[in-house]
Write a protein that binds this DNA or RNA. Structure first.
Lengths: 330, 330
DNA sequence: GGATAAAATCGTAGCGCTATGATAAAACTC
DNA sequence: GAGTTTTATCATAGCGCTACGATTTTATCC
């Protein structure tokens, strides 16, 4: 910055002011500074700026897995919207491990972030304390319900997702409901969807069952659970299958085809996620669609608004809801 | 840090030294400092440290899209390995736009990063200049060939991927080869795979054709291209289809089923990516498997080694190669 | 032209930590 | 115990920029 100032024949303060508030600098000085920046290919040092300003332009984003298409979509939307506001994403993923999550929060805080985005409402005690003490906007995403939000929240009720899937299958005449899920020990949100599905089925007086597995919810596991279900429900009629995500559903479809089992004539299926392939499946997959992109863009909007409002900021929770997408499998 | 020092009855220098090199501090002082850190819940300010040290623990990671499962896997591996080395990922994604890429590089550089990871070998002139002038380790990932590496590279030759797919289909008796691709205007790596496929086919004296589309390479597009191909090759025999990714292949499989076209009896298919569902498809998908996880972990290893070696560091290019996974579609 | 207000520019202390050399304390040798 | 070496601790300048008040310049009014 000192070199830019020298070249533009202004003081370093003026260069700094120009970068922060261009309208506060005269056109003559602006032109000179811009030219100097271009000629010297000057790149500001964000650490110096953040240190002097007692806060940085970093937004810590902590999700269970960036490989999971749900979270990837939200991260992408956050990047898009926050990038426009000159904020940078520092990414951490927990692989569903609470101790990792605590360390990632601590690391994010060491960058004096402008805000934090973290998936879920359930956190370990230390994590929650760190977040509560952080004095920066915190947005919990992808879930509502459970523990009260620390600050702001954007998500939906996974329990209601499961219930909606059960009600949809019942409305399609299914009298016996089965729920497939993976990551039984780690994925609290999938467990909520299962709980909602089973409870809604019971309320409607239907027979319900839960087939779960500790492995991640993959296409392969979907096929395995479908085969297992066939064994248990030999000859049963009117079965509806809820899957904790679309990959399990895809695997179930493939296994049904291999065994000449007709979908949905013999077994109706509904997934969760409305993943990229869902509409193009054969048969096209019914699913519950979360709005991952909307979650990201709403979280970004809340952050930007919070930063503008300062101490007067609010603490909203936004329920994005979800969509029922009725296609050929149900 | 001053508060921690006061509480531990040592100087702030000793606290700092303990955090950087614990073995350089006596056990008595170590215990006192650790206790003070715990009691005060002290979180270091990384910006101050980075500024004073003339460099930070940030690694800028710039990929076309985090929603793309290939890159997500590499980002996940980078996060895992670099996290172990106390480095933090600052993520940017370009959505295949070169101007965005340039800005993301500039932003990453403003954090005085320890290193940069960027996808691809082809970059705009300004981007390349920024990277060359950066004086930090730069690892280009997911591609080899094209322009010479700026510093280090971990990837494979997409042209060879296409050629391998063509040779595989020829070895399975296919006499007419078609390549499906999407994002025809943006995705240079997909274009390379197409070029390799077509060239290898021609070299073997086979009829070759390229069906491409400017839209992203989705399952739906796979179905559309398959339908288009059926029109053009009405009654042709011995056709082999190479797809620029597994999603296109999945869409082609679904469309074949809808039209009672037998895979691979009538048309053989090979994808790219070995995505999560590939093995569980009906029929199971033949594909070319890139090693996204290995690319991430190798890039991380190179960065960590570079940082340890300092000016004496080397500039390797690592060819991870790829695997041919022969399953039921071919 | 003088007085006043607004806009523009500048000077300065300091943000929290590091690297480095200076100093103090501990360990070793004779 | 004295001298030397090694280990541990401390003091200091400074990293590049910001926020803020001081100063200068420009614009407006009478």
């Amino acid at each position: 910055m000192v070199d830019v100032a020298r070249r533009a024949d202004v003081s370093p303060s003026t260069v700094s002011l120009f970068l922060r508030r261009p309208e506060a600098v005269s056109p003559r000085a602006s032109d000179a500074v811009q030219a100097a920046i271009r000629e010297l290919n000057y790149v500001p040092n964000m650490m110096a700026g953040g240190l002097a300003a007692a806060g940085s332009s970093v937004v810590g984003v902590i999700v269970p897995s960036v490989r999971n298409a749900f979270f990837a979509e939200t991260v992408a939307a956050l990047q898009r919207e926050l990038g426009q506001a000159r904020l940078q994403i520092m990414l951490g993923h927990t692989e569903y491990d609470q101790a990792v999550e605590t360390e990632l929060v601590r690391t994010a805080l060491s960058w004096a972030p402008a805000a934090l985005v973290i998936a879920g409402t359930e956190h370990g005690k230390t994590t929650r304390q760190l977040l509560e003490a952080a004095r920066v906007p915190v947005v919990q995403v992808w879930e509502l319900g459970g523990e009260a939000p620390i600050d702001m929240a954007v998500g939906f009720h996974h329990y209601e997702v499961g219930a909606a899937a059960a009600r949809h299958l019942a409305a399609r005449g299914r009298r016996r409901l089965v729920f497939f899920s993976g990551r039984a020990n780690d994925d609290k949100r999938a467990a909520q969807r299962a709980a909602g599905f089973l409870a809604a089925g019971r309320e409607m007086g239907l027979a319900v069952q839960h087939l779960s597995h500790p492995a991640p919810a993959t296409t392969e596991l979907g096929g395995i659970l479908f085969a297992r279900m066939l064994k248990e429900f030999e000859g049963a009629e009117g079965v509806g299958i809820g899957c904790s995500n679309d990959l399990l559903a895809l695997g179930a479809i493939f296994e049904a085809q291999r065994r000449q089992v007709a979908i949905p004539a013999q077994y109706a299926i509904i997934g969760f996620g409305d993943l990229e392939f869902a509409a193009s499946c054969n048969p096209a997959l019914s699913t519950i669609k979360p709005f991952g992109d909307l979650i990201g863009s709403e979280a970004a909007r809340l952050i930007i608004k919070s930063l503008a409002d300062g101490e007067a900021r609010e603490h909203p929770s936004i329920d994005t809801g979800f969509g029922l997408v009725h296609r050929q499998t149900s």
